[in-house]
């Protein structure tokens, strides 16, 4: 599948934003975050900024961005529509959460209620994002429960590293978000390895024989393509990545996205202070860059059954 940068940027940025929002909503009422109005407001603002830039970026790849409002109408059947609805609805508890925090403190009852509501909506939105991909049968690398699980896990992980960096910048030791980020980095690492084992190992469900229905005559191969140059189908769905590049990008995604951020946080937590904050910020930046590589691969390594008609593997 063609890795459109606007979609990659959108899912990475909004994933981190929703992860950050959910963790703020759950950890603040539990008293695991600084009970400071400034921290709460900056945290929620950062989360919503990441979400909003992501959502705006996602409209860049539309043919008619001015009609984007129509996408809120078909939530009965469409995961993309559900994602849009959930994304917009999340702003309501998130803004009320910010208001409650600034008036009633981080651990107040109303803060807790809106914090948990924000977390629930954030999880729902990311789940919808994952389901957009996981519901597509023609793309076997996406049609799996692993996809939704990973979207949720990576959103939580990137939110946790952002939260740790933010807490460190506010001079807070940040053991709770930091420890959580390290745990999530490890789970993310293993989840991604498991996903790659799945896409490398699974036998394709459809073949050129089932696509053409000519399997009864024997092996089928394409003699002539309908077109001499790549058409929309091949440009959009027939993206190909060299195996060597894929292997290298997988290593980059794992090392930059999960391993190095976890190591930096392991260093940052005991050091604390300015140096610790610097390491935590570096961990967050690296994690986001690593996740962009991961997301790029998620698209680039996905194959579509239409390419079977063009004599390619899917």
């Amino acid at each position: 599948m063609n890795p459109a940068f606007s979609v990659i940027f959108f899912t990475t940025a909004s994933g981190a934003g929703y992860g950050l929002l959910a963790l703020l909503g759950l950890l603040a009422p539990a008293g695991l975050l600084p009970d400071s109005v400034a921290f709460g407001l900056v945290g929620i603002a950062l989360a919503l900024a990441l979400v909003t830039t992501g959502l705006l970026a996602s409209t860049v790849h539309l043919g008619h961005p001015e009609r984007a409002w129509r996408a809120f109408s078909q939530w009965r059947t469409s995961w993309l529509s559900r994602e849009g609805v959930a994304a917009v609805l999340t702003y309501i508890p998130a803004l009320l959460f910010a208001f409650a925090w600034s008036t009633g403190g981080a651990t107040g009852g109303t803060t807790a209620a809106f914090g948990v509501a924000s977390a629930v909506m954030a999880v729902a939105t990311v789940y919808c994002t994952g389901m957009i991909y996981a519901s597509l049968k023609p793309i076997r690398q996406w049609h799996s429960p692993l996809v939704t699980r990973n979207y949720l896990l990576f959103a939580a992980f990137s939110g946790a590293v952002c939260l740790t960096a933010l807490a460190a910048l506010f001079g807070w030791p940040g053991e709770a978000p930091g420890g959580l980020a390290i745990l999530l980095a490890l789970s993310g690492l293993f989840a991604k390895l498991r996903y790659w084992r799945f896409i490398d190992g699974a036998a394709p469900g459809s073949t050129i024989e089932s696509a053409t229905g000519l399997g009864g005559l024997g092996k089928v191969r394409m003699l002539e393509s309908p077109n001499t140059q790549d058409n929309y189908l091949l440009k959009e769905m027939g993206f190909r990545i060299g195996r060597k590049h894929a292997a290298r990008l997988r290593r980059i995604a794992l090392v930059a996205g999960f391993v190095v951020p976890a190591l930096l946080l392991l260093l940052a937590l005991p050091i604390g202070g300015g140096a610790g904050a610097l390491l935590a910020v570096a961990a967050a930046v690296l994690a986001l860059l690593g996740l962009i590589a991961e997301r790029w691969l998620f698209f680039a390594e996905a194959t579509h059954t239409v390419t079977l008609y063009y004599g390619r593997a899917a």
Binding site: G218, M222, E224, P226, Y309
Partner: peptide, 9 residues
Amino acid sequence: RVHSYEAGT
């Protein structure tokens, strides 16, 4: 779009 295939060997 019209494709052409070889079926069988």
